[in-house]
Write a protein that binds this DNA or RNA. Structure first.
Lengths: 125, 125
DNA sequence: TTTATATATGCGAATATCCATATATACTCT
DNA sequence: AGAGTATATATGGATATTCGCATATATAAA
């Protein structure tokens, strides 16, 4: 889905920081950066937030080309766009590397990798 | 001024990104990071913004311990707090290093270093 | 002490952002 | 086709942020 027609203009620092300046979006970005790829319902479960809220924030991150998405069956998986400028990837990676404690409570609500059940809602409390 | 009584809690990623998510504050931070130290009226001049606006944003950055201030005569100089966590300094430095073109129009409105006149308003258009 | 320059802040208005709900779309399986 | 699950978006209201203006304070020079 979401076919890339032409290369978008590179992200500006102001754009990046505005995207990361919301707790829900920041948690999504850091958790995705750490896990490599996550679908909407996994994030919904991990962050304990309602699905439209997660989806709306992911849409913002996708439209800004910070995230890429990939549909697999009924699930849509999001990942960090590896084509982001170096400084932007660096900001995300450095923040992630030195703030791991912020993610641990979220990781506990994730299914173990490679153990995703058919119905992901079974993961969530 | 602004005596530090006790060590403040380290900045969270969300706090940093919220601070950098405003164009005026971002320009102030990047320009200060590049120049080392700047006073309010230099920033007012460089950014072509009214003084209360600059002062208010600098106060936010100072209260969050992102900037330190130092009064010298009638001027108050702001600098990056070197005690910021590594990931935060890294975000600022990486962004600065790879987005120098954003600063060039602002630098042109700065007095050359070491050439500050008595009346700084003489710098400004 | 008066005047000028530099900086900080109180306040209301304008603007931007975020949220919950409802609803639409897409896919899977039977 | 119909039911169940997953994802996306539209809408209107609540909240937060930012702004300009006026003004207060501080330092310096006359």
């Amino acid at each position: 889905m979401h076919i890339l027609i032409a290369e978008a203009k590179p992200m500006t620092p102001l754009q990046l920081f505005k995207l990361l300046a919301d707790e829900t979006r920041l948690q999504c970005v850091l958790l995705i950066a750490e896990q490599g790829e996550l679908c909407v319902c996994e994030l919904t479960c991990a962050l304990k937030q309602i699905q439209p809220k997660i989806s709306r924030h992911l849409a913002m991150l996708r439209k800004a080309s910070l995230l890429l998405d990939r549909r697999q069956g009924q699930w849509v998986y999001y990942r960090i766009n590896p084509a982001l400028p170096d400084w932007a990837l660096s900001c995300i990676q450095q923040t992630l590397a030195q703030n791991s404690t912020l993610l641990s409570p979220l990781q506990q609500n994730l299914c173990a990798m490679g153990e995703r059940p058919q119905r992901l809602s079974a993961c969530c409390a």
